[in-house]
């Protein structure tokens, strides 16, 4: 029997602490999956909405297809000659799709919708005379509407940013609570195995060996619990009903594509956390036992 094999065996596999560790690591991992998803989704929303905000205003142009180009040219000319407007840019369909995705989800058949054309305006710091511009547009290109309504998105973008902070704080709290539970469980495991420690001491085992024997068991349990918790969390996310439209934050909570790999870091992370927390505890306890 080698040292490696025996170190796996010297700590009896029993006691409530074992269950406490697996169960709490599982529960925490489950929660961590959601916090992570929330952080990813809200970050994405914040980015989309902030991007929209930077384009302080748009002109929405609705016109019959055959008149679209002519009307666009007129609008651009009006904008070019309006003081307070730095530049104007006609959005290509892809850009428009990206903007809409945050609201309607990625799977909408945009081609099938009679979408207005959007012209993005970058204003100078003073900005244009909005009322004057509206009147001019109404006179020269009746299908065009000057729209600086993107401003109402600002609180939304802020809320999304705030939500992301909450999610990150939650992740931190989950990690902290997990570490605290591991510390408690490790102390309990060491305290309830006084005889194991005494015997190992007697035969000349070093603290490092004794600590490792405990730590290995604790971190394996934590890793295993976290694996199950993560799997359940991911399953629950995948099973969230995907609403076609409506509030995207709810229906879209989760990961996209390779983003699904992200929660897979939770189990190894939980294991490392458990390892560090229990190792520190074990050394601390062993230093107090002669």
């Amino acid at each position: 029997m080698s040292a490696r094999e025996i170190s796996r065996l010297v700590v009896p596999r029993r006691g409530q602490s074992v269950w406490l560790i697996s169960l709490s690591a599982g529960a925490m991992a489950f929660l961590a999956v959601f916090a992570l998803a929330l952080s990813v989704t809200s970050a994405q929303l914040a980015r989309t909405w902030s991007a929209a905000l930077a384009q302080t205003a748009t002109v929405r142009l609705a016109a019959p297809p055959e008149e679209m180009e002519a009307q666009t040219a007129i609008v651009l000319e009006v904008l070019r000659t309006t003081p307070g407007i730095e530049s104007a840019h006609v959005m290509v369909p892809d850009e428009q799709a990206a903007l809409l995705e945050a609201w309607l989800g990625p799977d909408l058949p945009l081609d099938a919708l009679p979408l207005p054309r959007l012209i993005e305006i970058t204003e100078t710091s003073e900005g244009p005379d909005r009322q004057g511009l509206r009147l001019r547009l109404a006179a020269e290109a009746p299908g065009a509407v000057f729209d600086d309504h993107t401003r109402w998105r600002r609180p939304l973008a802020e809320a999304a940013g705030r939500l992301r902070s909450f999610a990150l704080v939650s992740l931190g709290l989950i990690g902290g609570v997990t570490a605290a539970i591991i510390v408690l469980a490790a102390s309990a495991a060491l305290a309830s195995n006084g005889q194991v420690i005494r015997v190992l001491r007697l035969v000349g085992a070093r603290d490092r060996f004794i600590a490792r024997a405990f730590v290995r068991q604790i971190s394996l349990r934590a890793g295993l619990g976290a694996l199950v918790g993560t799997a359940l969390g991911m399953g629950a996310l995948a099973a969230l009903p995907q609403a076609g439209g409506g509030v995207h934050l709810l229906s879209g909570l989760g990961f996209a594509g390779a983003g699904w790999l992200l929660p897979l870091v939770i189990p190894p992370l939980a294991m490392v956390l458990a390892w560090a927390a229990s190792l520190t505890t074990a050394f601390q306890v062993l230093r107090g036992v002669t």
Binding site: M1, S2, A3, E5, I6, S7, L9, V10, V199, L200, V203, G204, A205, R206, F209
Partner: peptide
Amino acid sequence: EQNVALPLSATGRPV
């Protein structure tokens, strides 16, 4: 048997 071998196995010596 494992207990008797412990002074070796727990200190990294071959058994």
